[in-house]
Computed example of a mutant assay.
Amino acid sequence: MTDEELREIVCRLHTELVRNDLVAWTAGNVSGRLPGGDRFAIKPSGVSYDDLTPESIVVCDLDGNRVEGELSPSSDTAAHAYVYRHMPDVNGVVHTHSTYASAWAARGEPIPCVLTAMADEFGGEIPVGPFALIGGEDIGRGVVDTLKGHRSTAVLMRNHGVFTVGDSPKAAVKAAVMCEDVARTVHVSRQLGEPLPIAQADVDSLYDRYQNVYGQRSAR
């Protein structure tokens, strides 16, 4: 895959954030890198989703320096770069302020694993990361430190929003979509009463089945 093809993919995936109501105005971003690569493509700062083109997507090195593109990269570029440097198996990062998941982040509360869909996708609760200011590496450090020891590919950064990771940009986008979906469902459940927990052994079994059995394996 070339840089041009990667920019095309990253550009196209931003439409999924809009289609799934995960972003408002120009907030949020998707980035992606080639497996094992030393550069990544990311949304330009403050550009409307309607105006994104593959040419407008910015390519940066793993220190967050722009190496291709005419526009300034996202204000979250340093955070994405930190994740890529410290999580070598990650090739996609997504950030959103999706409503329900961000509401949990505003409370500083993990989303408990009370749905089989959560066990499937995240292998447990969706954890909360520390408060960190935008623009530097602190957010990326919080994402990396929080996800250590977790099977979750999503983290709720306190008072901020959602960061997700994946082995591809598409996988990271999927995690962002699923994070908002379960955040909404668990919130609604709590309006009716206390959600029922799932036993850890069952969480483990569900996660293993979904990750290793579910779907068309030959197509992956």
Rank of each mutant, 00 (worst) to 15 (best):
I111P: 00
S102N: 03
H86Y: 05
V213G: 09
T116C: 14
N65C: 11
R85T: 00
G28Q: 08
S48M: 13
K174P: 14
G46F: 08
A175Q: 09
V23M: 09
R7L: 08
D50W: 14
A183T: 02
V83P: 00
A79G: 04
H80C: 01
H95G: 03
M87K: 02
Q191N: 13
N29L: 09
T15I: 13
V59I: 12
L133K: 13
L196K: 15
A78T: 07
V144N: 00
L6G: 08
D21L: 13
A176W: 02
V90R: 00
P35C: 07
R7Y: 07
S72M: 15
C60P: 03
K148Y: 01
A41V: 05
G123D: 08
I57T: 08
N20G: 11
D167G: 15
V128K: 00
V186G: 05
G123K: 08
F163K: 00
P112C: 08
F131W: 12
H160E: 05
T53S: 13
A171K: 14
I57L: 08
E137G: 04
H80Q: 05
K170W: 13
A101I: 03
A154R: 00
G64F: 01
K170L: 15
R190I: 05
A132S: 12
V182K: 04
W104E: 03
S218K: 15
G46Q: 09
G108T: 01
S189R: 15
E70D: 15
W104L: 06
V83S: 00
G136Q: 08
D204Y: 07
F40T: 02
E109T: 07
D138N: 11
Q200Y: 09
P110K: 04
V143G: 00
D204H: 07
P35Y: 07
G140K: 00
N29M: 12
S56F: 06
P127D: 02
S74E: 04
A175W: 05
D3H: 14
T146Y: 00
Y207E: 14
D167M: 14
T96S: 05
G215A: 09
G135R: 11
L62C: 01
V182N: 03
Y214N: 13
D51Y: 12
H150A: 07
R33V: 04
T185A: 15
A132V: 05
N65I: 09
E4H: 13
A119C: 11
H86Q: 06
M87H: 02
A154W: 00
L62T: 02
T116R: 13
R66Q: 11
E8G: 11
A81P: 01
A172W: 02
